[in-house]
Simulated scan of single mutants.
Amino acid sequence: MHNSSGQERRARTQEMVDKWLAERQQMLVLYCKLAGIESFDPDKPEKQLLRDFCQLLVDYVAFGHFEVYDRITSGEERRGEVIKVAEKAYPRISEVTDIVVAFNDKYDLSDHIQSMDELTEDLSMLGEELANRIELEDKLVGALLR
């Protein structure tokens, strides 16, 4: 009986990681599309792309926080290596979460018109922060799937 519950936990972990990585991939695809736009006019179709990107970005970050980290910190995760990697990575991941929230607050165009003058620079900075976060997440994923 004990072995099957271990297999179930591993299957749930794999499913959680797969969903997280799929959301991350979707977000990165939209990031690349946005980063490739030469000049941004808020009245053009790119506005919807930016809106979609902000939504995916927030969903991805929220999934990481509420599904992955809460599971680890709630005591559901018993493997010391996973907890150790998470404790080391989480403060930096949390900083990137704050940057993502600030970016979303600035560019979520559903309720206000935001100047697009800084978008290219903000996307570049966000991309660097996301790259740092992804590197840490990959370490965590490696520990989770061991």
Rank of each mutant, 00 (worst) to 15 (best):
Q55S: 13
C54Q: 08
R24C: 10
E38G: 15
E76G: 11
Y60M: 13
I72L: 07
F53E: 01
I72V: 09
R78Q: 11
R71F: 09
S74V: 01
H65K: 14
C54F: 03
G64H: 01
G75F: 12
R71Y: 13
E23F: 12
A35W: 03
D70Y: 12
V68A: 10
M27T: 15
L34D: 05
L57T: 05
T73I: 09
F53G: 02
A62Y: 06
L28C: 02
D52P: 04
V29E: 15
Q26R: 12
F40E: 07
M27Q: 15
T73R: 13
A22D: 11
E46V: 08
D70T: 14
F63M: 03
L56S: 03
I37L: 13
R71K: 06
K33I: 14
G64V: 05
F40H: 13
D41A: 06
A35G: 01
K44P: 00
V68K: 03
E77L: 06
Q25E: 14
T73H: 07
D41P: 01
L28M: 15
R79I: 03
D70K: 14
W20Q: 10
G36A: 14
D52Q: 12
H65E: 15
G80W: 02
S39W: 05
L57C: 05
L34F: 03
L28P: 03
E67S: 10
G75V: 07
R78C: 05
R71V: 00
Q55E: 08
L30W: 06
E46L: 05
F40W: 15
S39D: 04
A22S: 13
D41C: 04
G36V: 09
P42S: 07
K33M: 15
L21F: 00
R51G: 04
G36P: 09
P45M: 01
D41I: 04
G36Q: 09
E77D: 05
Y31W: 04
E67I: 11
D43R: 12
F40N: 03
E76S: 07
A35D: 12
K44M: 11
R78T: 07
A62K: 10
S39E: 14
R71L: 07
P45D: 05
P45C: 08
E38S: 09
V29I: 15
P45V: 04
P42N: 06
Y69P: 00
Q48I: 09
Q55F: 08
D52A: 09
G64T: 07
W20M: 15
I37A: 11
Q55P: 00
A62H: 11
W20V: 01
R71M: 08
C54K: 04
F53N: 03
L50I: 06
K47F: 02
F66D: 11
R51K: 07
F53H: 05
Y60H: 07
S74H: 03
S74F: 01
K33W: 10
F66W: 13
D59W: 02
S74Q: 00
G64D: 02
E77F: 06
R51Y: 12
C54E: 01
I72W: 00
V68H: 02
R51V: 11
L34Y: 06
H65I: 01
V68N: 08
H65L: 08
L56V: 00
Q25H: 11
